[in-house]
């Protein structure tokens, strides 16, 4: 490797390669699952993701773009599915719990702990810390039980990837959409439009509008991640950040203002409607009803926080 590239970048690249290998394993293993209902689509999805993750640094931009589309096609066609469930039996997990006990929390907390340690004590990305934490956690699990072999980890991660499925790519795809919006100059158009309604140059008004817009648009779209890319470019940037507000405070809190919207909308079905079915509840909106007050208080709290810490 080029010695001029910083060690942190190299480590991050190793992490991407590790991610790619895990995704690739999921894709290839799918091909060998006899009972799998959408072998080809699922394998294409995870394998193209694997190629982008591993070789992204060296691939021409155009190729990466094409690979993203190749990855997305089976997902859009509904051809990315979970394989036959190979989860552990209840008897097994109970026996393991008896054997390992509370020690199981040590590897559980390892990823977050290492991320903080890397953030505080090194100049390397905390994400590398997460990767190191994963490796330590895996070693601890292997020490705790001889049944945890390298293949166990790979098969379990495949099972987890099957559960999250293609929607796990949403943040990355939304970031790409944001990049297109920026290149095409969408932010400027929204900013011009919004400036006809609210005064530009008043940071307090800007913050309140930005925070409330995040909550409302998240309620309409059902997804705070989709809202933040659009609303930050259109409102957060020109009406708050351009006036010199602290981007870390404003940008991050805008996301959690969006979460207040998530708590209040049936559009976020995964969180608010699906649990009604899972818990055999009678009222379709009884989860949302229990969240509305919390969401209202949290939105108010965060707007005040933004106004104070801006």
């Amino acid at each position: 490797m080029d010695p001029k590239i910083a060690i942190g970048t190299k480590l991050l690249e190793c992490l991407y390669i590790l991610m790619g290998l895990v995704a690739g394993y999921a894709g290839i293993k799918t091909l060998f699952e006899k009972e799998h209902k959408a072998k080809i689509g699922t394998a294409v999805f995870w394998c193209s993701l694997a190629v982008i993750l591993v070789f992204g640094r060296w691939l021409p931009k155009l190729w990466s773009g094409i690979l993203v589309i190749v990855m997305a096609i089976p997902a859009v066609l509904g051809q990315v599915k979970a394989g036959p469930n190979g989860g552990p039996s209840k008897e097994y997990t109970e026996a393991q719990a008896k054997k390992i006990g509370y020690k199981i929390f040590i590897p559980t907390l390892m990823m977050g702990t290492m991320a903080i340690i890397f953030a505080v004590f090194t100049k390397v990305s905390p994400l590398v810390g997460v990767g190191v934490g994963v490796i330590i956690a895996a070693i601890l699990l292997m020490i705790f039980s001889k049944n945890n072999k390298p293949k166990t980890f790979l098969d379990d991660s495949k099972r987890m990837l099957d559960i999250v499925g293609p929607l796990s790519m949403l943040p990355m795809l939304l970031a790409a959409l944001g990049a297109i919006f920026t290149t095409a100059g969408v932010g400027q158009v929204i900013a011009d439009l919004v400036s006809k309604v609210i005064p530009q140059g008043n940071m307090t008004v800007g913050i309140i509008v930005y925070a409330v817009a995040m909550a409302i648009f998240t309620m309409i779209m059902g997804n705070a991640f989709a809202a933040i890319t659009v609303i930050t470019v259109g409102i957060g940037g020109p009406f708050v950040l351009a006036l010199g507000a602290n981007p870390t405070v404003i940008g991050m809190l805008a996301l959690t203002c969006g979460y207040c919207g998530t708590l209040s909308t049936p559009m976020a079905a995964n969180f608010n409607i699906v649990p009604v079915a899972i818990l055999d509840m009678k009222g379709r909106y009884n989860v949302i009803k229990n969240q509305l007050i919390v969401a209202g208080i949290m939105l108010t709290f965060q707007i005040c926080y933004m106004l104070i810490a801006k």
Partner: peptide, 16 residues
């Protein structure tokens, strides 16, 4: 995509 690396242990934590 950091969640992919994390999943390397989440399933196995559950198993144990």
């Amino acid at each position: 995509a950091i969640f992919i690396v994390i999943m390397l242990v989440t399933g196995t934590l559950e198993r144990n």
